[in-house]
Amino acid sequence: MSQTELAGAQPKEFTRRTFIKGVIATGATVSSAGYLFRGTSLLGAATYQTATERLITLSINGQDRRVDVLPHETLAMTLRYKLGLTGTKLGCDRAECGACTVLVDGVNQYACSMLTHQVRGRAVTTIEGLENPDTGELSVVQKAVMDEGGFQCAFCAPGFIMSMTSMLDTNPNPTREEAAVALSGNLCRCADYEKILNCAMRAAELHRSV
């Protein structure tokens, strides 16, 4: 099975190209500034820039969240610095490590490389949104990680868990090799890949028995 087949046909894929197009469309320049945090609404202080924030509504973990967003603001920055969702980690700032992976309409995406304006009207799920909101019960992937004692430093864990969640949606019955391909967009510097694959296979097992 090829890599694209495993990833599934995604209705809207965000590539670096569409990311850049989005930046251009919103009138900002393509610069490293997109990877930095701008937080006027929190601090209420003047800044050097004239770009203005717009109040928009996002669907995050099943809730409508109203938030002021700059044209060039990345989803990772909005989540971490405006919505208090720090479970989404920044490991590299630009699509090299996958620590910031979230689900957008169920598909795993790098939140560092999407503009927040791109996810208006779409369902965003972060690591904080995987537990059952009423009971606190862990998702099957989280349960599998608990069962297998997964991860070392775990800075990459939220990203891997989101990718595993997405994988089960498209391929609930993966082989170990297919799981490795599905998770290959996430980097673990502790290189705990053997145990991470154990978690993925256990997650698939739990998912099938639900």
Binding site: A33, L36, F37, G39, L43, T47, Q49
Partner: peptide
Amino acid sequence: AAVDEETAAAA
């Protein structure tokens, strides 16, 4: 130091 990271980077 600045009120936000972008301003600090611009500075």
